[in-house]
Write a protein that binds this DNA or RNA. Sequence first.
DNA 1: CACTGGAAGAATGTGCACATTCTCTGGAAT
DNA 2: ATTCCAGAGAATGTGCACATTCTTCCAGTG
Lengths: 246, 246
Amino acid sequence: MPTRQSRATKADPQTDAAIHAAIARAVMDGSLRAGTKLAEHRLAEIFGVSRERIRKVLHRLGAERRIEIIPNRGARVPQPTLTEIREIYEAHRVLEAGVLMALVPRLDEAILARLDAHLAEERAAAERGDRSASVRLSGAFHLLLVDAVGNAELSRILRDLLSRSSVMVSVYEPASQSICAVDEHGVIVDALRARDVAHAVALSAHHFQHVEQRLRLDPGPAAATDLEAAFRPYAPPKPTRARRAR
Amino acid sequence: MPTRQSRATKADPQTDAAIHAAIARAVMDGSLRAGTKLAEHRLAEIFGVSRERIRKVLHRLGAERRIEIIPNRGARVPQPTLTEIREIYEAHRVLEAGVLMALVPRLDEAILARLDAHLAEERAAAERGDRSASVRLSGAFHLLLVDAVGNAELSRILRDLLSRSSVMVSVYEPASQSICAVDEHGVIVDALRARDVAHAVALSAHHFQHVEQRLRLDPGPAAATDLEAAFRPYAPPKPTRARRAR
DNA sequence: CACTGGAAGAATGTGCACATTCTCTGGAAT
DNA sequence: ATTCCAGAGAATGTGCACATTCTTCCAGTG
């Protein structure tokens, strides 16, 4: 009997990890706005894989709290309330206090040099008005701090928290302002260099509260986004014929 | 109105959540020892559900890092190295420092009363030599601390961390000693009552280091455990006839 | 005109069959 | 005797078909 389709032409064009990363990134960077429905069938068509593959990825994203899954009702990009967002930021602030306390005793010149280099990058991005780079770098600053402690578990937890707060920035953050003022990062590094734990912690807390205060009060429109447009840069290695957008 | 009878007659004997909880608990409390293979087919028979159901639960447990999944090679109870365990404990210690700093400013009599009541429970368990209760309560103490902050996200993160360190206790902890000395918990509460943040943090760090030092250096035997025996208390609504273990 | 009931269509959930990969055993060659 | 290889058996991965549930829309009634 004839084989259905020799999918043996090549190994899976889209591996699970690739699809997972694509959707996670689209959710994180705001390409998919809060409230967007993530229908299994449509995603399967877009990525050119079976629905089961999409289904598995979606469930994993749900377990990671990156998307919201309601039984029998599918997956959506989460639309967090302002209270939930403040909780995320507060959690980040509380945990970073512990990170700073653990970091000070093990500071060395190499770590301080890396932080200085990062601050220079941030300033450069701010000066040339590159908002995209600024957002990315300001998040990376906090990751740099936790990575300096040298505990993989800590890094994983904080990285996860940061990636989830990124989702929310796209909903609540006014687009005209940068997320983290580079000056505030600079003074934290200064306090670290002086081995002043209490001051570093206080500056960090103050910094996070600044960010929280900048959040808009209205959630903005919860309109859905076109799935195909969001995933166009990713991977249709499938010669799909033109499809009309409804 | 004809009520749905399909659910009534065929009533899912085991819901996904129940199976998930059963396996997670078995892994956490040591009923399944490190290295035990979790074969899909056998679990499906034991719980009396289809293999797909087990498969989904297993993948979710893997995403939560509660079990270890190797592609094409199945799921196993993780057997962490001593270094990984120390990282978990260190992470917990670092994060709890932040929690204590956030907790002190919002301490009130109600919280202190809850902590006191918990300490009394711990002492009672210790006095009657109930090791099982002692282990459970000593973990609950740290959850009580983070819950008192009132941030659900923080509670979730620390709860997850604690549940994962519980796995390791069963591997590395000598059975004759209790996990957390109740005295050490008591002095932490004393420092909190005095609003002495620095002291509370120092005591907490000292406490965690105590626990770390108690860990045995040899991982002990990595023998597998009989799956059916571990899950006998759970889930056999199976009218299956007796089956002999091969 | 508003509201309820229900049917049709669509989306999600599940079991099954088959494909792929791995493990284990037995035998032959060095 | 040890090592390597091949084949059988078992376990995992995947696509498909069907069952269940939800949404939507429309007809009928008060």
